[in-house]
């Protein structure tokens, strides 16, 4: 007599197209994705020559991290970099937000500012360094200015797009309930665009970090970007690794903070029916 085979699950496998995945499986794969490059790096650094200038091992980099922390005041470098990025970013956001709202709401403002912004954003931020030094000087504000130049113009355009994506029916419904123009901007357009605007802030925060090294090209004597540049001069490859990885980690933490804020501020987006 043939025995029945155990009931096969109707749940499609994880490799089916856009298939389902449990949280445990997700984190399992995420861990593999993170550890594999680490393993590859370790293998690569131990193959062939033991030349730690060409390719420092993870252990070399870790040792350098500890040394930087104990002897060269790593925390001070981190804080000054976080300060510069955050200041440049906040300055961008503060100006981009009202401008984005106006561009996305009023056609004349759009016509006046959007082509101009589109033009400027293709100019390389690095190329502004001599001008920034000439106009602003070489103190903190010049580094903040570079980060501002790198993020502001992109941010304005993205925010204007966020505002334009507010469904017309939401605006028109308010109009037929007697809302004035300023009421519509405050109570409908801004409220409706808020989640997208916060997402734009999150994405542009990441870009702000990519301009850090450029910003600290300007007569800096501290900071993660500056340390990377200095390490390059002395061929301290391990220190370059530390700097790059730290910038990546700080960016990751900030990204997660933004995601957390998004979930807290806009609970209706995370509800199930």
């Amino acid at each position: 007599m043939r025995r029945k085979s155990p009931q096969r699950s109707a749940r499609p496998g994880i490799w089916s197209i856009r298939g389902p995945m449990s949280r445990r499986q997700y984190w399992g794969f995420a861990l593999v994705g993170l550890l594999l490059p680490l393993l590859g790096w370790w293998l690569l650094s131990h193959m062939g020559t033991d030349d730690s200038v060409f390719m420092p091992s993870p252990l070399d980099v870790f040792r350098r991290l500890i040394q930087w922390y104990q002897e060269d005041d790593l925390l001070a470098d981190m804080w000054i970099s976080i300060y510069r990025v955050t200041a440049g970013f906040l300055l961008s956001a503060l100006i981009a937000l009202p401008l984005g709202l106006l561009i996305g709401t009023f056609r004349p403002v759009q016509a006046m500012l959007e082509p101009l912004t589109d033009f400027i954003r293709y100019m390389p931020a690095v190329a502004f360094i001599p001008l920034v030094m000439l106009w602003i000087g070489i103190d903190e504000s010049s580094k903040i200015a570079i980060i501002w130049i790198g993020t502001f113009f992109q941010m304005v355009l993205m925010m204007a797009e966020d505002v334009r994506r507010v469904p017309l029916a939401q605006i028109e419904a308010a109009q037929t309930m007697g809302a004035t123009r300023s009421e519509i901007i405050q109570r409908v357009i801004f409220q409706s665009a808020k989640p997208a605007l916060l997402d734009t802030l999150r994405v542009t925060m990441g870009w702000a970090w990519t301009y850090l090294v450029v910003a600290e090209l300007v007569a800096a004597n501290s900071g993660l970007g500056y340390s990377i540049l200095k390490a390059q001069r002395f061929l301290q490859t391990d220190k370059i690794f530390v700097g790059i990885i730290l910038i990546g980690l700080i960016g990751l933490v900030m990204d997660q903070l933004f995601r957390f804020a998004h979930r807290k501020a806009f609970p209706w987006l995370y509800l199930r029916k």
Binding site: P167, A169, Q170, A173, T176, W268, L269
Partner: peptide, 16 residues
């Protein structure tokens, strides 16, 4: 104006 209210096919409610 408020004397002429409109009901749309969709996307007019305020999700927040």
């Amino acid at each position: 104006g408020a004397d002429r209210a409109m009901v749309f096919q969709h996307y007019s409610l305020y999700p927040w």
